[in-house]
Write a protein that binds this DNA or RNA. Structure first.
Lengths: 198, 198, 198, 198
DNA sequence: CATGAATGAGGATTCATTCAT
DNA sequence: TATGAATGAATCCTCATTCAT
């Protein structure tokens, strides 16, 4: 089934180009014509691969989220120690944000839409829930083994970690100052290490 | 003589209504007609008080930021102890976010615009810089007095705190789950207390 | 009846200011607010003196046309010789255009409107007819007395003179080059003198 | 492959229709919707061919002016005698005005705009300068050869001719009386012949 | 009389999407 | 499959005019 491969490949290519356009112009201001030009195809052709403008955004960020989830599983791997596992996850998360920088920038627009439109919301909700339960179980694990401080509510700490991550991404998107990401990451890792362990 | 109107009061009233409309529909989707209807005035009247749609957003969030900055100064007051000062600031910040819930929701859209348009960016940049330097000096103070751990880069920790705050706001906007804010806040305060102190 | 004098005086004052505004911005682009500011009165006050925007234009150019007609009669005075009479009229016409320079500039806009709207058209038509019959009778007089060349159709020559005058005004409005008016006037007078006399 | 369209042809078609609409309603009052309906196309389609409303006007009158300039050169052709050359030019000019009657009617609006907006002004200025220098050199030629009266300032006479022409066009637009154009033309030709020759 | 706050009809323009080729 | 010409719904904003004070 070579055709299908081609089709999927072109979908990805168009989505990648779109992300750049979205990043530069903003999702709302970006015109389909801009994408077509950037992708070197006709305007109509986009609609052979995507239902509409929102569909491109959705698809592109699907990839971003899937890569995160897959990468997160890989990052934790067979690590037994909960602290090590958590730190490996955090390390991966920051590397992921750096690698998918453009997607992160567009994520803000996606977020705004997602907060309002039901379908998007449900979808993003599920992702966040996944991330949080993943984190919460690590926290619980650490607390059970006596390595993490008992005072923390696992769900609350998980939500805190997600918040921190989202905030760091957004802030970096806005700032774009070189070295800022690393500064924040180092502070975060140290703080978590010192503050979470029993 | 014509009707006498408190221009500034009416500006504020329109902006307040607008924020609600922006929150519900999103800034981009919200139509000037929606605002006019919600405010119980004619479409044209809006333009007597604001140059354009963006001007309303800007004005509304100006108030939000100014209230934050003023409140932050008040929250720190005469507190000498750096930890107490920091915690008071954090406590205020979360209360501020709760009080200005609608503005927070719209803040995402503002952020997206600000990241792209020069004027907005400069303005928001200044606010962030203010917040960070405020925080960094508290950290330094704590480190000098030996109360805070020496390992932290003050600027990095300040950026982390801002990130965390922004992330918590955004996450809450998205979630909107009752009790979530408090869960995150408590975890944050405990983490900072435990992790930052020497 | 002092009130009426005041009212009429203020009408004139507003109309004069309006002509300047119309000249600078063009009739269509000029806003009632501009006129109010320029006149140092409130927007609503204009409507105490004029029915609407078009009414101001109409009134202002009424004055212009009336002054022309009155001045023309005066310029011809008791002059018996048809050539002298014609030249005196032409001389006056050019001086009138110079004196009412701003009105001339606005006249273009008026003309465009007049060409389209019935009421305006009828009015302007009457003025042109007056001017033409005035001129035609001078030509006929000159031809009867054997001083003007017989070959000219009086109505045709009158229309030519009006055309030339309108054209000179418009061209001058556009050019605005100093000395241009005089150059055209001298050429016109010489041409008419040489070409019209038998 | 999509429909193949001769862009330039369609541009011309839309512009032609627009001129009719402008003539009937006036440029300012004419709505884009009117043009679309008259052209049998969608409103949006106009913008595929023209940047905006002003662009249509500009394009249409570009054609008008270009046709004039080209026709003028043709009309003068290889004619040696300056009087003959001038009369041929005048004859052409009047025929041109008759042929482009609708454009002439719209020309008034263009003129009003051109007198105010810098870009338009520069453009129209250049055209007038061309016409005048063309005419002035004919006058000079005639004077050198002793055929034209020496008393005329060539530039002044050229400006007079242009004024007369513009005035005749405008006056005709306004009058629209049948036979008027010919009456004016005949008077003009006779006057120039008699008055200009030595 | 004078005012300017309020209004909403009106119009230019944009752009996602469709569809004939 | 690819295209881009065509479309019109959608929306911001302007400004002449009204009218309560």
């Amino acid at each position: 089934m070579p055709k299908i491969v081609d089709k999927e490949e072109k979908r990805k290519a168009i989505a990648d180009v779109s992300i750049t356009v979205f990043k530069n112009n903003g999702y709302h201001s970006a015109r389909m014509a801009d994408i077509a030009v950037a992708a070197g195809i006709g305007k109509g052709t986009i609609y052979e691969y995507f239902k509409n403008k929102a569909d491109i955004l959705r698809y592109a960020l699907d990839n971003y989220f899937n890569a995160f989830l897959n990468g997160a599983v890989l990052a934790m791997g067979e690590i037994k120690d909960p602290l090590e596992k958590l730190l490996s996850l955090i390390d991966f998360a920051f590397r992921h944000a750096a690698k998918w920088e453009d997607h992160c920038a567009v994520y803000v627009d996606y977020f705004g839409t997602a907060a309002r439109e039901k379908d998007y919301r449900i979808y993003l909700d599920a992702i966040y829930r996944d991330m949080e339960s993943m984190l919460a179980s690590i926290i619980e694990e650490g607390q059970r083994s006596g390595k993490f401080h008992e005072g923390y509510n696992p769900a609350g700490f998980a939500a805190l970690l997600v918040s921190l991550y989202e905030g760091a991404i957004l802030y970096d998107v806005f700032k774009g100052a070189p070295g800022n990401r690393e500064l924040v990451r180092d502070a975060a890792i140290r703080l978590i290490e010192k503050g979470l362990t029993a």
